[in-house]
Amino acid sequence: MSDLRELYLEMVTDHAKNPRHRGKAEPCDCIGTGNNPLCGDKLVVTVHLDGDTIEDVKFDGEGCAISVASADLMAEVLSGKSVDDAKELFSGFHELVAGEGTPEVPKKLAVFSGVREFPMRVKCATLAWHTVIAALNGSEEVTTE
């Protein structure tokens, strides 16, 4: 059976308990709200852009360990990336947690590889990502349902 420790790696629980990127990006150039009705979670993701470059990502709201850690590490990884890079990173991340292949992803995202064994938690891991991509595309609200 899948191992719980693969899901809750130390880096995940650490970022869940002490997120570094909680708050609001200033100035806020785009904003998105993500809902996960399954667990009642709601994340607000704000982005500061400089042209096509993501300068800063912040998130706020309530969530489980997986969704908070994922939002926090996403914010870390996206900083300095282009909008297209962000979309590519998301597709790699999605493949990592929900797919079957072995995508190349930054180390900070690879800690979520254990999620694949817990299909009920894929939505938690991808909530912040869906939200940021929607925000970058100009739509404000997403839901994982």
Partner: peptide, 22 residues
């Protein structure tokens, strides 16, 4: 300090089926 969804996953891992959410 533990979100219900995480409690649910850990319980499930122990064979204990509970419900979490609203």
């Amino acid at each position: 300090g533990v979100h219900p969804h995480d409690v649910g996953t850990i319980c499930d891992h122990e064979g204990v089926a509970i419900r979490t959410g609203n």
